[in-house]
Structures are given as structure tokens and as C-alpha cells.
Amino acid sequence: MALIDDLAEATPQLELDRRKALGLLGSGALALAGLGTSIVGVQYLWPNVLFEEDKRYKIGRPEDIPVGQVVVLPREKIYLVHLNEGFAAITAVCTHLGCMTRYESEERRFFCPCHGSVYDLEGNVTGGPAPKKLPRFQVVVDKGVLMIDASKVMDPDFVLKV
């Protein structure tokens, strides 16, 4: 039977020696500090207060807008369309890459000049690269006046019946 020479066998390094432990502690602390700095860095670059305009707009009295009319609000980037079902506040911002579409009254369509997307008056895509129909915003009647809240995106078929 062969004897095993214990002294010749390498001792398994199960314990951390001081150098390794301090090294791990040091790099751990450095990693933690780096992570904290990155988080605080992103928080710093994230604005807490924005001086952007109020997204609620008063438009006018619903009885002044006949069925089929498109009210173009270029500054607000919204079309208020009086569909047969009711009022729809459709965004004028193309769903492709965010350009401003224009209302073409002869063709009765919305057209994006950047890459040629075409939408019908309900906001459905009828041509071009646009991936989805134009989203609609909330419309309410407040003291007899139509109000659009562009901070509230509603479901794609939302209309206000008056």
C-alpha cells in the first residue's frame, strides 16, 4: 500500500489570506462607490422641474364645430376632428419619428413631410413607414367649452360624444 505524503501535497487555499481579503474589500468598496456615483450622476442629470407649458388647452364651443370639420392647432400639435361618433383630439406628431404632420384638406388626410407617412382623419395609417395610428388625447366639455388635456393619452378610439 502506497503511503500518501501529506507534506508534498498542496494545501488547498480555502482561507483568504490578508492580502486577498483586503484586496477584495478594497475593490468592493470601489465598485460600491462607483455605482453610487453613477446613480447620483444620472439623478443629477434628470431634471426635477421643467419649465414646459401647460398641456391643457381650451378650444371653443362644441356647437361651433360642425361634423367633418378639422380644427388644426399647430402650436399645440393637435388636430381636433369632429367625427360622426364625436370629437377626437388626435396628435399631429407622426408615430414614425416624431415629425409634425400637416392637414391636407383636399385629400382629407394627414401627411408627414419627413418620410411620407399618410393618415386618414381618424388617425389610421394609410401609407408610408408609420408603425401605428395617431394616439388620441382626452377631451372634455368644461362649462360648455371643449378642453383637451394632452398629458392624458386615451385609447386609440376615444371620442367625446356631445
Binding site: 444620472v42 434628470w46 414646459e52 419619428l97
Partner: peptide, 24 residues
């Protein structure tokens, strides 16, 4: 506008990337 909307198309964090790029 077009360039930052491309960043917006990144899954999950795209909207945050766009917001950080524009600061608004």
C-alpha cells in the same frame, strides 16, 4: 427630433434615454 425618437424606440429604457438626452 428624429434622432431622439430613434433613442425612444429602444425597448424598456428608450423613453428614459430620450428624456435624459433632451433634459425634458
Amino acid at each position: 427630433t428624429v434622432g431622439t425618437n430613434m433613442a425612444d424606440a429602444v425597448p424598456v429604457i428608450g423613453g428614459d434615454i430620450k428624456f435624459l438626452m433632451l433634459g425634458g
